[in-house]
Design a protein around this nucleic acid. Structure first.
Lengths: 201, 201
DNA sequence: CACGATCATAGACAGAGTGTCCAGAAACGG
DNA sequence: CCGTTTCTGGACACTCTGTCTATGATCGTG
């Protein structure tokens, strides 16, 4: 495959990706047909099936793209020591969501089936659980709640707020302010829940 | 419509309801056809369309049944003064979910599209926001975070934990213990966030 | 510029599922 | 037993799907 041909292929896939996302946001996943997608992307219907097996396959492609991108950026931000506690990761996710809000809205709404949503939830809460555990160990404190439950709750909280924020009518509340709120909640509620007081000297 | 005929009709609708829920949990909403549903409910295909316009209509029927039931029970539990803060409503929702876990799992997974899930979220967070506001006013304190965000976060947290708990493998963690955790999180994190300390005298 | 490789395309195809209709069977109350 | 209501199987046209084939478009290379 030559460079230009690869570029052509990429452009087609990108067009299909974008068409799916915007159509799904417009009418909902079930109401979007392959016909609609190829019409919006301005490609032939046969072409669709040379790139993706399914409407589902295209959906999965979008989700995994976003998730992969997010993971890379989170890995860069998460200093192993302070991971998950300072609210930095939250800010990073908000920043990422701002760059491709449509894809985020599609996924967080649980559009399609909930696969994208659950992939997000699982990946994120696993990370949260790890960092919670590490922090509790590092400070030799005794968590006052089940850390598994804590991680789920923490992630659920952030995702709910993120979706609410993305769906908010313009002018959308400032990112910093919303993130600040989440960080505050995390600091007090979570630190306390793990038995570690951030304000103690 | 006579009494018995009404009873016959109810039985049919109930069978369809149950069939939808169990099939959706088994294979996912999109993979369930009207054929499958009527086969599982042991009724004719034509009968389906005399009761519901659509597969979607049946889904909506299930969701609104559950939601209506829940609202009634919450209204009974929520003493206007302490509403949303003691963790009592959380316990009530868990109790309700225990009585019809399949329907809850279907809805909270965002199966179908996310309509059921969002209906839950909206109703619940609206209530939360109201009670938060009332409480803050009653104690003449100044909330340290946006109450809208707080409500979203609170509900997201509870729904995430509820789904996690419903989907947990047997033996499922005791309800009381999980609820206790949520209550603890709510008491400290939320009370603090609204500027009202429950432990102050 | 012409060749070969690769991608895009239109149109046709069978199959599955949908939603509607009807005439008749079944269940029920009076 | 009669009248009413619900349930039923079968037939219908329709939409969408996923596959296939033959043809056209695009590009790098020799």
């Amino acid at each position: 495959m030559t460079v230009v041909e690869d570029r052509r292929s990429r452009r087609t896939r990108g067009a299909l990706r974008d068409a799916l996302v915007s159509l799904v946001l417009e009418r909902g996943y079930a109401a979007v047909t392959v016909e609609d997608i190829v019409a919006a992307a301005d490609v032939g219907r046969a072409t669709f099936y040379t790139h993706f097996k399914d409407k589902e396959a295209l959906y999965d492609h979008v989700v995994s793209s976003v998730l992969l991108d997010l993971k890379g950026r989170l890995a860069a931000v998460l200093a192993p020591e302070d991971a998950g506690f300072t609210g930095e990761p939250v800010a990073e996710v908000f920043r990422h969501a701002t760059e491709q809000p449509d894809a985020y809205r599609m996924i967080l709404r649980g559009e399609g089936d909930g696969r994208g949503l659950r992939a997000f939830e699982d990946a994120w809460s696993a990370t949260a659980h790890e960092t919670f555990t590490a922090r509790v160990k590092a400070h030799a404190v005794r968590p006052r709640v089940d850390l598994q439950v804590l991680a789920r709750a923490w992630v659920g909280e952030q995702m709910a707020v993120l979706l609410w924020w993305l769906d908010a009518p313009e002018p959308r509340p400032a990112t910093d302010q919303v993130v600040e709120t989440l960080v505050e909640l995390s600091r007090r509620g979570r630190f306390w829940a793990t038995g570690f007081d951030p304000d103690a000297r």
